[in-house]
Design a binder for these strands. Structure first.
Length: 134
RNA sequence: GAAGUUCGCCAGGCAGUCGCUGCGUACCUCGGUGCGUGGAGGAAAGUCCGGGCCCCGUAGAGCAGGAUGCCGGCUAACGGCCGGGCGCCGUGAGGCGACGGAAAGUGCAACAGAAAGCAAACCGCCGAUGGCCAGAUCUGCCGCCGCAAGGCGGCAGCGUCUUUUGGAGUGCAAGCUCCGGCACAGGUAAGGGUGAAACGGUGGGGUAAGAGCCCACCGCAGGACUGGCAACAGGACCUGGCACGGUAAACCCCAUCCGGGGCAAGGCCAAAUAGGGGAGCAUUGGCGUGGCUCGCGUCGCUCCCGGGUAGGCUGCUAGAGCGGCGCGGUAACGCGUCGCCCAGAGGAAUGACUGCCCGAUGCCGUUGGUGCAAGCCGCGGCGUUCGACAGAACCCGGCUUAUCGGCGAACUUCCCAA
């Protein structure tokens, strides 16, 4: 699997993935149930970035799965919360095939009002890179 | 041309790539893939009203409680909308208004002020009417001051004295008339001053001074009349000299309306575990009861039934629907007809990236316009982040709040030109 160079700011070359890469984001790649959320948090492993806290727990499903948590306290408006989630999912979607099999929860833990999209993207990319790999 | 008012509309655009999701369809390994097609708002927001829908309750009526509150209309309904009236604001187009009752009762009114509700009178004005307009001395009594002697003041006496008592006239006299003074009784509410608010306004007459005390006009109240469905309005009517102050988002009274709870409503399916009911098997089983047998209870296995948790399905989007045309109505809206199908998620889709354009913003430049100049406007270049407010959660009708900017129509005021 060719490794895409991780530029800090997205470049056009990054957008065009090699043919055949699975960039879909289907239901199987998400966390849905309350039990799934609880078990990830109970595993008590997390990486702290500037904006996100990335909780993780290895699974045996052969793929990474993601959920995003945005507290109302940190983003008051519903449209802002939705936007943060969408941006986070987009990063995950692009990176999924390169990630270890684990359940992930990206939890916003800092106010996002002054951050730009590039800041958020960079933060989450770095966190995903730091995930422990087998 | 500038400034503004009202109403309606839009809510960055186009292209490409990668995704999410509903529906239809074809294929297969039954989970996907391909193709087609749809996928946030004017406020989706606040959850403030009204309704549909659902469950519960309910003979009927009343009480309590809540909401509304000029009139007429519209509507499924409303606290909404339309039209009208009245009041206030604006030069105007227009805007704003919980806008029923104070003559049913109870209450409240800080500060100021004499006085805050039924009359009263602080300063002031008047003093018509009534009263007063010598002093000294003596006696008695009372009060105050003083240790006392005494002093000061008040009241009383048909007391005493004097140039006979504010001045003038008159009379024998009691007295009477005129003039003046005091402001004691009393009169007054014009004026001053306070206040958010003080018992009509202006002018004249009148008076001691004043006053609706009288008169004229204006205002006000009541009643007729006229116009209007009504709220209400009108003047060339009549009556009344004028009251009945304010406050009801104070209690209250009157009129009208309202059963409760919500899609986490409600319906269906239903694992695991525990427990309930029934049938059967084991019948020579174990344990308990008992001296023993029967019987009863309990334990085991199989099956069935009902309740029900996690979970799943449903409710779930075709509707007081949207658009066009015609007709009725000032309008809100209604009727008819034709066409259309227009989001249904569920840790929660409707997105991300790239390019060009549009807009915003910063810096720089500028034989451009304007200005003394700073600057402003225009134009060009570069960079940046960004694209107002904001994200459906059963569905509608409203209200309220948020909102960069743009477009259209009608109207108003001012300036210039003809």
């Amino acid at each position: 699997m060719p490794v895409v160079p991780r530029a800090v700011i997205a470049s056009p070359s990054e957008v065009t993935e090699p043919a055949g890469a699975d960039e879909r984001f289907r239901s199987a790649y998400r966390l849905h149930k309350t039990d799934e959320f609880s078990s990830v948090f109970a595993f008590r492993r997390a990486l702290r970035g500037k904006y996100y806290m990335l909780h993780y727990r290895p699974n045996d499903l052969g793929t990474a799965r993601l959920a995003v948590v945005v507290a109302k306290k940190l983003a008051k408006r519903a449209n802002v919360r939705n936007l943060v989630k969408r941006i986070a999912r987009e990063i995950f979607r692009r990176e999924r095939v390169n990630l270890p099999a684990a359940d992930l929860i990206a939890r916003l833990h800092a106010p996002v009002a002054l951050a730009t999209r590039a800041d958020l993207n960079r933060d989450l990319r770095q966190l995903l890179e730091r995930l422990p790999r087998p």
